[in-house]
């Protein structure tokens, strides 16, 4: 039986509400952009929290749709650099307020993926790095063994072993998901990466301290 498109399902309600909230947050962020920069630190904190709320909403809706099996997935060829640059530009104000420098070292690779979904993952990784970094973030990408590797590095203190272990359990589905926003974000990234398949291989994510800048690293690996 086809779904009735007349009456709104919970899915439509959730989706509409999430979009509405994201819109409001975007208005908040736009308003903040117009403020004088004298309270830069406070500004940065508010921007960060609003951006994090946007991402949390994306994750919430995304994970719900994945669970229901109704997440739209549109695979097509995209240049990774386009996606990464857009994410960085979208966070320009936040990065400026926080005084964070972003270096890009992304090879000019075109890849078969859902650009919308990968963009949300890169964005989450970027905002995650904003939280942990001291002053610098580096995004690098390249190809190896038929996989696309995208690393988001920071120059913070790196992740303590217990966090790395928790991440490992999370992505291997060994631990029940504790719903802190941090793990929720990582879980979303892992699930989205895993939607990307090629010739029997599956995408994944990795958390490590292999950052070129000496801090933590979140890697997205796509087949």
């Amino acid at each position: 039986m086809q779904e009735n498109t007349n009456t709104p399902s919970f899915e439509h309600l959730l989706s509409a509400s999430v979009n509405d909230m994201k819109n409001s947050l975007s208005m908040v962020l736009q308003t903040l952009d117009g403020l004088p920069a004298e309270h830069q630190q406070t500004l940065g904190t508010v921007q960060y929290e609003a951006t994090r709320m946007q991402n949390t909403l994306t994750q919430l809706l995304g994970l719900y749709l994945i669970e229901r099996g109704t997440l739209p997935v549109q695979m097509s060829e995209h240049y990774l650099i386009d996606i990464v640059e857009e994410c960085v530009i979208a966070q320009r104000s936040l990065l400026e307020s926080k005084g964070i420098q972003v270096e890009l070292d992304v090879d000019d690779i075109s890849w078969y993926m859902d650009a919308q979904l990968i963009s949300s993952v890169v964005n989450i990784a970027l905002v995650n790095a904003v939280r942990y970094t001291k002053s610098q973030i580096s995004i690098s990408a390249g190809m190896s063994d038929g996989y696309l590797y995208l690393h988001v590095d920071d120059n913070g203190q790196g992740y303590p072993p217990i966090v790395l272990e928790k991440f490992q359990q999370l992505v291997s589905d060994q631990a029940a998901l504790d719903a802190s926003s941090q793990t929720l974000g990582w879980y979303y990234c892992e699930r989205v990466a895993a939607i990307h398949c090629n010739q029997g291989r599956k995408g994944s994510t990795r958390l490590s301290n292999e950052s070129q800048l000496g801090g933590g690293r979140l890697s997205i690996i796509l087949p």
């Binding site: 779904e3 989706s15 979009n19 819109n23 749709l65 109704t70 549109q74």
Partner: peptide
């Protein structure tokens, strides 16, 4: 701003 699948598709 739509994310529901019927619209996106």
């Amino acid at each position: 701003a739509e994310t529901s699948r019927d619209v996106v598709m």
